[in-house]
Design a protein around this nucleic acid. Structure first.
Lengths: 190, 190
DNA sequence: CGCGGGTTTGATGATGCTCAAGCCCGGTGG
DNA sequence: CCACCGGGCTTGAGCATCATCAAACCCGCG
């Protein structure tokens, strides 16, 4: 869990004992590809921090196809924030894209953690601030770019990610059909 | 500023002296319609809390039309979070849609505030968490719904807002042209 | 009364989806 | 080792959604 410590160090300063104590609030989970952390219709109990691997969040639209709205790779948190905060049923699923190692925490444990370690209040403030900022930009891109531009932008920004993830998930994340992605790629190739 | 106190009370508990002290970190700004709080290309120095009125954030796309990405009404914060956090140039503008009263705070003052009143760390954590959750849902809607559905959804959820704001801004916010909004409305009318 | 910003209408065309089919390739069982 | 899946990627035809452009209209306001 050194990578989690290194991650925390980017936002707050804690010593080793403190970190050890903080760690006790989390549960380490190792899962293989396609493992479901969360299923829609059930209470969103936990949030997940990716130590290694990759998760995705998706929903099933009225046509029955899975629509990916978020990926989480190393050092990212993922959950259905709205449902988590209120302990509601989620209408999302969270699934492992690869074999992954994840830290899990549930709401009451997190509250306990925040009480015992108020510095974590600052940590989560910064994490959410960052997440929100990313989200703001993402929304802008969705407004600003055509599907083709989205793909080009994404693949130049994260070429390694394109390699790592199957194309139909990329298409699903960018909000279009695999067929159309295929067309775009063909066009770019020529 | 009782409304700001009432707003804070929803998240944290503070007494009157504490609130008075907190208030000193903010600057109260009264502006009229069309006032520009932020202009693109300039450093994003502050964040803004709307006490009364309505602000919007927009950018100008390559065709020269303004694209609204966010509204802030009473009890909402608004800024270019990414640029604010890093004190970068913003590529957004923030403008008053109506005559408004706003609380302004800049980054170093906010840091000072957080140092003096650590409870505000918790407040902002919750604010960002909420904002992020809203953003997540928004992204889902953008994936899930057609433009027409977006409009119907928005106008049933916030009918009073539709009254309050000119249509071309609604269209801009929902990501389509005023012409198309007009068509949708005509269709719904019949 | 005329001006101008906002809304409406309609014709035309691009973008991106649907559906159906074929292809490629790695894995599995015989 | 080969035959055969079957999942994912590709191709193409046809179609819906939505943008563009131009024009008219409406109405509040100076």
């Amino acid at each position: 869990m050194e990578s989690f410590k290194a991650h925390l160090d980017k936002f707050i300063s804690i010593n080793d004992e403190e970190f050890a104590s903080i760690l006790t609030f989390f549960r380490v989970v190792e899962v293989k590809k396609k493992h479901n952390f969360m299923v829609d219709g059930e209470i969103c109990k936990s949030m997940y921090f990716v130590v290694k691997g990759c998760l995705r969040k998706f929903f099933v639209n009225e046509k029955g196809t899975e629509q990916t709205t978020e990926f989480a790779i190393e050092n990212w948190w993922i959950t259905d924030t709205f449902a988590y905060e209120r302990q509601f049923k989620s209408d999302f699923c969270i699934q492992a894209v690869e074999k992954s190692i994840v830290l899990e925490i549930d709401l009451s444990t997190q509250e306990e953690l925040l009480r015992k370690h108020p510095v974590m209040e600052r940590y989560f403030r910064m994490i959410y601030q960052r997440a929100y900022a990313a989200s703001e930009r993402r929304i802008r891109y969705l407004y600003e770019m055509t599907r083709e531009e989205l793909y080009v932008h994404f693949s130049t920004l994260y070429p390694w990610f394109i390699q790592r993830i199957p194309q139909y998930l990329i298409a699903s994340f960018l909000g279009f059909t695999p067929e159309y992605l295929s067309e775009i790629r063909a066009k770019l190739r020529s």
